[in-house]
Design a protein around this nucleic acid. Structure first.
Lengths: 259, 259
DNA sequence: GCAACTTAAACATCTGATGTTTGCTTTGTC
DNA sequence: GACAAAGCAAACATCAGATGTTTAAGTTGC
């Protein structure tokens, strides 16, 4: 009845601690519709099937479909008008910061242009987060970062390494003690997972280059050195940019602004 | 039956172009519950009334309440468990970047601590946005910024000025041509509205100080000067910080990280 | 050619029944 | 008395079907 999400999307939900509880029918329908919309199966402004057709297609009752549609409306993907139908809104109206919307992007081939935007945001957010973490993190929060670093060092599989990497960056966001930054962890996950999917042709190289950069960030935060944490994170971001540029032809760093 | 939203919240929805269409019952119930949760009427993890009680209280049917609850679950405010009840999640799990959640914050007295976090994010985002806008904005996008500037100069009421101010910053976000930054306009609106609510004791002063700063940003973007746009925006942010610090005792700028 | 009316499509809401999960209570045994 | 299994009630999940409302489009009449 439902299409299964792919590995990246599952990994995304894992990282968001959103797994474990079996989602209801409404959530399943919502996700399946959401994946199709994000994948571009519908033109901007196109009408989707009406309630009855959707009921038939998914084999569920009207209430379930209605709830699913309401969820997608809440995420800005759909727009319902009584009398006419339910249509797909233009991409500029989507809540691109929503975790589900970002997760559904993991299900499709990453577009270089969107990945660059994600990386620009990382470049903007993470050095600040590292700096704030260095000046305001509690001991417990620093422990969390250190644990992630240890897990990266110990990781034996690619998947373990990716998860530890993600947890490292999440721990820094949380240690920044800014609720809004914490709420952006989904964006960082999305950029990170997409980057890895593209650059892991030589995972060993990835790992050898990453580890010392992460260590440097951790040490700066441990030392309460805000500036150094910030610049170490900048270095890490620049490294990621460089690796993406090597692999991805359409990926271009807007050097002008970043000098 | 329903509590009416206050002026700031209405203004927020106006800016988000979310007005005009009469929301359905489910949306109304969702907003009212959302306001109460954000306002802190429920302890973390507290059970809210069950479906039947909510039906009675709001005078609507089960389906409506169910949809409203599903919406709040989607925003991370609620968590439902079959058998037990529906409970309020801890604040760290809320989607604080969601436009509705931010709008509901407008309904309550702004907490200095949260306002500082909002301003830290503005300080992080807007200089970058201005820089990218300077290097990549189209003529149409620059026109939009200029129109907002003109509207600020011409504004005769405080409300007109606030709206034009918000549109100015939104136009810059959009001109940055980064979909994720565009999706953050709600955060900027929220910070801006809260700031104004606090610092508009002397609105004339506000206006006289703001206008030249905005003009400087506009001119830099018109001149395609990325660095100047960035630093002009920094100056504007610093000014806002300073005015907030003067009025708000609990508001403190973390100077250490920003040098 | 245009305005007023009609109608069908599609969403909005309500009602009430039935299934399922969970947590608590009760009961029975050792 | 302790503990485990069975039973029960609360609360959400889903379904089915009826009725109301809004919108868009077609139709008629002048």
């Amino acid at each position: 009845m439902f299409k299964l999400p792919n590995m990246s999307e599952l990994l995304y939900y894992d990282l968001k601690d959103a797994a474990g509880v079996a989602p209801g029918l409404a959530t399943q329908v919502c996700r399946e519709l959401g994946r199709r919309i994000v994948a571009g199966h519908f033109a901007e402004g196109a009408l989707i099937d009406d309630e009855n057709k959707l009921c038939d297609r998914f084999g569920v009752s009207k209430s379930v479909v209605r709830e699913a549609v309401k969820l997608l409306v809440g995420k800005g993907l759909l727009e319902v008008r009584r009398g006419s139908g339910t249509r797909v809104r233009r991409r500029a109206s989507w809540n691109l910061l929503d975790d589900d919307v970002l997760a559904w992007h993991q299900g499709i081939e990453p577009r270089p242009d969107f990945l660059r935007q994600l990386m620009d945001v990382r470049q903007m957010v993470e050095p600040n987060a590292a700096g704030w973490a260095a000046s305001s993190a509690t001991d417990v929060q620093i422990d969390e970062i250190r644990n992630a670093q240890d897990a990266m060092e110990r990781a034996v599989s690619i998947q373990e390494f990716v998860i530890a990497d993600a947890l490292f960056h999440r721990a820094i966001l949380r240690a920044s003690n800014n609720e809004l930054l914490t709420a952006m962890e989904g964006v960082i996950f999305s950029a990170l997972l997409s980057s890895i999917k593209i650059t892991n042709d030589d995972p060993r190289d990835n790992r050898e280059r990453s580890l010392p950069l992460h260590r440097e960030i951790l040490e700066a935060i441990e030392a309460n050195d805000s500036d150094k944490a910030s610049s170490a994170m900048c270095k890490h971001m620049a490294d990621t940019y460089e690796r993406l540029s090597n692999v991805l032809p359409g990926f271009r760093l807007k050097e002008a602004e970043r000098g």
